[in-house]
C-alpha cells in the first residue's frame, strides 16, 4: 500500500517533468539511472547558462545553443569558443535528445551524460577541465546549496554535474509544431503544405524519419569535402573506410530557425540545401544508398516542400520560459 502510493507519486511527478508525445517511440535514454526531479533540472539549467563552465568564465553552453534558435547558434557556420576561437563544426540544435542513439555530428559521444564533457574540454570551445569546473563550483556561494537540494550532497562531483546538465537537456522536447497538431487532427495543412508533405515523404523521409525527423543514422549526403576543414566525419571515430564523410542525419524540426545548415554550416538557406540534393551531390563509395539518384523538383514543388518544412517550427518550444536564461542566476554571474 505504502509502496503503491510511493510508486504512484513518482509516476505522476515524472510524467509532469517529461512527457513522451503521442505516437512517439520510447526514448533511448535510461531515466531509471538518472530520474528527473525539479531540483536537478533547475540546477542543470543554471549550469547550462553559466559561463563558469569555461576556462576564463566567458562562454556558456547557451553561447552556442540559444533557446530562441532551437538551441543552436544562428548565423554562425562554425562554433565559437573562448578567446575568439573557432571550431570545425556547426553547433547542432538541441531538442528531443532522449531519442538519440549517439551524439555529435560524428557520433563520438555514446551517452547524453557524457556529451557536455566534449565542449567543456575542447580548446576551441570552453577549454576547461571538468575537475577544475567542479573546484570552481564548490567555491561559489550558491552552487554547493543547489547541489545539496538536487542530490542531497553539497560535495560536488563530476557525476552530479553531468547528470544535472543531462536533466535540463532532456526536458527540451519539441512536439508542438503545426505538423504535430495536424497529425493529432487538431488543425489542417494548407494545400501548399499538403503538396510539400507528399514531396517530403517521397524524397526526404527515408533519412529524416517521422516523427523525430531523423533516423539518427550516419550518412554521406554527397557534400564535396571542404578542403580547409578536411572533415572525414564518422570515420574519425570508427577508423573504418566505409564511414568516410558520413555525418549524423540532423532533425528537420525547427529547421526554420537553425540555419546555417550542414555539419560545417555551408548553406544559409533551405533553397540552397534543396539545390544541393538536386544537382550538388558528389558521387563516392560511401554516398548514401538513398541518394543514388538526384532529386528532381519543379520550382513550384520546391516552394511547396519549404512550406511543409516550415510547419515543423515549434514556437512553444522556442519561447518556452522554462528553457531560457534563468533570471535567478543573474546576481551570481562571475562571482
Amino acid at each position: 500500500m505504502v509502496l503503491g502510493i510511493f510508486i504512484y507519486a513518482f509516476k505522476t511527478d515524472f510524467s509532469v517533468l517529461f512527457k513522451i508525445p503521442e505516437q512517439w517511440p520510447k526514448p533511448i535514454y535510461s531515466f531509471d539511472k538518472n530520474p528527473l526531479t525539479q531540483e536537478k533540472i533547475a540546477l542543470g539549467r543554471f549550469l547550462f547558462y553559466d559561463p563558469i563552465l569555461s576556462k576564463n568564465n566567458t562562454v556558456s553552453c547557451a553561447s552556442c545553443h540559444s533557446s530562441y534558435n532551437a538551441f543552436t547558434h544562428v548565423d554562425h557556420a562554425l562554433s565559437h569558443g573562448i578567446d575568439g576561437r573557432i571550431g570545425t563544426r556547426n553547433s547542432p540544435a538541441l531538442m528531443n535528445l532522449a531519442w538519440h542513439k549517439l551524439y555529435m555530428w560524428d557520433g563520438a559521444i555514446n551517452h547524453l551524460d557524457m556529451q557536455a564533457l566534449a565542449p567543456m574540454s575542447h580548446p576551441d570551445e570552453m577549454g576547461e577541465k571538468i575537475d577544475h569546473v567542479v573546484y570552481k563550483l564548490q567555491h561559489t556561494t550558491h552552487y554547493p546549496a543547489l547541489f545539496y537540494k538536487a542530490f542531497n550532497d553539497s560535495i560536488i562531483t563530476g557525476e552530479h554535474l553531468l547528470k544535472s546538465i543531462s536533466q535540463f537537456m532532456l526536458t527540451l522536447v519539441s512536439a508542438e509544431a503545426k505538423y504535430d497538431s495536424v497529425m493529432r487532427g487538431q488543425s489542417e495543412f494548407t494545400q501548399q503544405e499538403k503538396n510539400g508533405y507528399i514531396i517530403f515523404k517521397q524524397q526526404c523521409a527515408s533519412c529524416h524519419q517521422e516523427p523525430l525527423f531523423s533516423s539518427f543514422e550516419f550518412e554521406n549526403n554527397g557534400l564535396p569535402m571542404d578542403t580547409v576543414l578536411n572533415d572525414i566525419g564518422r570515420m574519425k571515430i570508427t577508423k573504418n573506410q566505409n564511414d568516410s564523410l558520413k555525418f549524423k542525419v540532423p532533425t528537420l524540426r525547427n529547421i526554420e530557425y537553425t540555419f546555417p545548415y550542414m555539419h560545417d554550416g555551408r548553406f544559409n538557406k533551405l533553397s540552397a540545401v534543396i539545390n544541393h540534393y538536386e544537382r550538388g551531390i558528389v558521387k563516392s563509395n560511401t554516398l548514401s544508398k538513398k541518394l543514388q539518384t538526384n532529386m528532381v523538383l519543379t520550382s513550384n514543388e520546391k516552394v511547396d516542400l519549404i512550406a511543409f518544412l516550415l510547419t515543423l517550427s515549434d514556437k512553444k518550444f522556442l519561447f518556452n520560459n522554462q528553457y531560457n536564461f534563468p533570471k535567478e542566476l543573474l546576481p551570481y554571474l562571475n562571482k
Partner: peptide, 18 residues
C-alpha cells in the same frame, strides 16, 4: 552507461572528453 561516481567519476582524469 553514462556518468558514474566514485572511481569512475570523470574528474578522475580517466575518461576521454572528445
Amino acid at each position: 552507461s553514462g556518468a558514474m561516481g566514485g572511481d569512475l567519476d570523470p574528474t578522475k582524469g580517466m575518461y576521454w572528453t572528445w
